[in-house]
């Protein structure tokens, strides 16, 4: 393993992570809801919200879109926008993300952040599982199938 120190951004990573943690805290202490993006999006778009309340879910997701683009404009852009990525890989992967997060009741935010933060065994095991399959998938795509040229 070689570590790419030139690309390592520890302070931005910690600061961004802290903001995500603050968001999860605001949603939990403010209204008792777990900041799990796949759960919020899934129950919104499948019309299956347990409490039947779609408005706060929509506003939360619109807030994510707006918060990100706001910082993008304020900073003048922290990274190059990716282009030319194979559309089949993007669409096929997105379908698996949708099915998998609903089947497994969560994603990086619900299991990885909130689940581990509240010491949930389900959250920890789910996180270890999706990290493992993500590592293997990227290894296969870049180093076995040989789409390594993909940024």
């Amino acid at each position: 393993m070689t570590i790419d120190w030139a690309s390592f951004t520890p302070w931005l990573a910690l600061a961004g992570g802290a903001l995500i943690g603050l968001s999860a805290t605001v949603l939990w202490l403010g209204m008792g809801r777990v900041a799990g993006i796949s759960g919020i999006a899934g129950s919104l778009f499948s019309f299956q919200a347990a409490d039947g309340d779609r408005s706060w879910r929509l506003l939360f997701l619109l807030g994510i879109v707006g918060g990100a683009v706001l910082v993008h404009l304020l900073t003048g852009g922290l990274f190059e926008v990716r282009s030319g990525y194979p559309m089949g890989l993007l669409i096929g992967g997105a379908l698996l993300v949708g099915i998998g997060t609903r089947m497994g009741s969560g994603c990086t935010s619900g299991h990885g952040v909130c689940g581990i933060a509240r010491l949930s065994m389900r959250g920890l095991l789910a996180t270890l599982t999706f990290m493992a399959t993500a590592f293997v998938t990227v290894y296969l795509i870049r180093h076995v199938i040989g789409l390594g040229g993909l940024a």
Binding site: I37, S38, A41, L61, I64, V65, G66, G67, A68, V69, H72, R82, Y85, L89, L90, G92, G93, A94, L95, L96, V97, G98, I99, G100, T101, R102, M103, G104, S105, G106, C107, T108, S109, H111, R122, L125, A126, T127, T129, F130, M131, A132, T133, A134, F135, V136, T137, V138, I141
Partner: peptide, 27 residues
Amino acid sequence: LLGGAALFGIGWGMTGYCPGPGFAALA
């Protein structure tokens, strides 16, 4: 839980986006 998480991880690795960043990148 584990089967769903495994599928999600494959999709994450294929795209580089999990659900939150998908929304963050929309605009």
